[in-house]
């Protein structure tokens, strides 16, 4: 198997079979009515509202008219105040810690799912996708019952004759715990898809050549699954930094994230320009994360090819 064919399989999935020439969907007129409705929705409900939000972010706040069209950078300057900088840093920290925890727990789980056989895989996917699709409010509520002052864990400990010992509610730790549960499936699914494309023969070959399980995981599985892990990690990070409900219910005053500030400024304080500026800052972070992960995946790919070429030339010599 040449490296190029693996990489094309890892990145693009199975090559699409060519439909017959002149099949439905080929004609230019068909293209318009196939893509048209969704493109219109994207423009009306996404592109225009986001552009509108971007415009408001440089306008001046007005207590009664909401805003007046006088350009200003004041809203962005306010983001640099210590309080909001702290919120931004906290949001990034929570996002990064959550993503790291998801990787540590999720990559081995994805590997196990990829190799556990069809029945276990079916059950495993159900147990993975079902919680993922349940509302985040419900899940935050569940964590409150488990982790609260009088929660399940403390009840058990009191019932066993000890003191209450768990006091994570209303801390950043509680927010991270709930977010890891939310983001984990988002990381596992793409990782699983890329691990499944690694031929088992490759693993067997590595094992026959004396690779230990840890070596196998580090030298074969991780590099080949890197694109899936990278795209899953980005998804997990994006979801983790864009939440309102989870920190509102579990974080308390000291763990507010940028989503809470955007919500309060928009709905309660009615400062639309400042809320918009924070939203634009969040979009900038999202873009930065996507670009960083693409760059990391490309670098990993280059490194892998380089190593393969070196190994091939060493083998030929």
């Amino acid at each position: 198997m040449r490296p190029t064919s693996i990489s094309s399989r890892v990145e693009g999935g199975a090559p699409a079979p060519r439909p017959p020439r002149g099949a439905a969907g080929d004609a230019p007129s068909a293209r318009v009515w196939l893509s048209g409705p969704y493109v219109v929705l994207l423009l009306v409900a996404l592109v225009v509202p986001l552009a509108h939000l971007g415009a408001i972010s440089i306008f001046t706040h007005h207590p009664r008219l909401m805003f007046v069209a006088e350009p200003t950078l004041e809203n962005y300057a306010r983001l640099l105040q210590p309080y909001y900088l702290e919120v931004l840093v906290r949001t990034l920290r929570i996002g990064l810690v959550t993503t790291l925890c998801c990787m540590v727990l999720g990559v081995p789980l994805a590997y196990w799912l990829a190799r556990c056989g069809p029945t276990a895989l079916g059950i495993g996917l159900f147990l993975l996708v079902m919680p993922m699709m349940v509302s985040t409010v419900v899940r935050a509520f569940g964590w409150m019952i488990i982790l609260g002052r009088n929660g399940v864990i403390n009840q058990i400990s009191v019932g066993l004759g000890f003191e209450r010992w768990l006091f994570v509610m209303n801390t950043e730790t509680a927010v991270v715990i709930a977010l890891v549960q939310i983001c984990l499936p988002l990381l596992v699914l793409p990782t699983l898809a890329s691990i499944e494309r690694i031929p088992r023969s490759l693993e067997e070959a590595a094992a026959n050549l004396g690779a230990s399980p840890v070596q196998l995981f580090r030298r074969v599985i991780l590099p080949l699954a890197a694109p899936g892990i990278a795209s899953g990690a980005v998804l997990a990070f994006l979801v983790a930094i864009g939440v309102v409900v989870t920190p509102a219910l579990m974080g308390g005053r000291g763990s507010r994230m940028i989503g809470n500030e955007i919500y309060d400024q928009l709905i309660t304080a009615l400062n639309w320009p400042f809320a918009s500026a924070m939203a634009i800052a969040l979009i900038a972070i999202v873009l930065g994360a996507v670009i960083a992960s693409r760059a990391a995946a490309a670098a990993a790919e280059r490194f892998r090819r380089e190593a393969a070429r070196r190994r091939a030339s060493a083998g030929g010599a």
Binding site: A45, L238, G242, L266, A279, L282
Partner: peptide
């Protein structure tokens, strides 16, 4: 890709 709180706010 865009956090849904932003879509909601916009």
């Amino acid at each position: 890709l865009i956090p849904s709180i932003l879509l909601g706010a916009a």
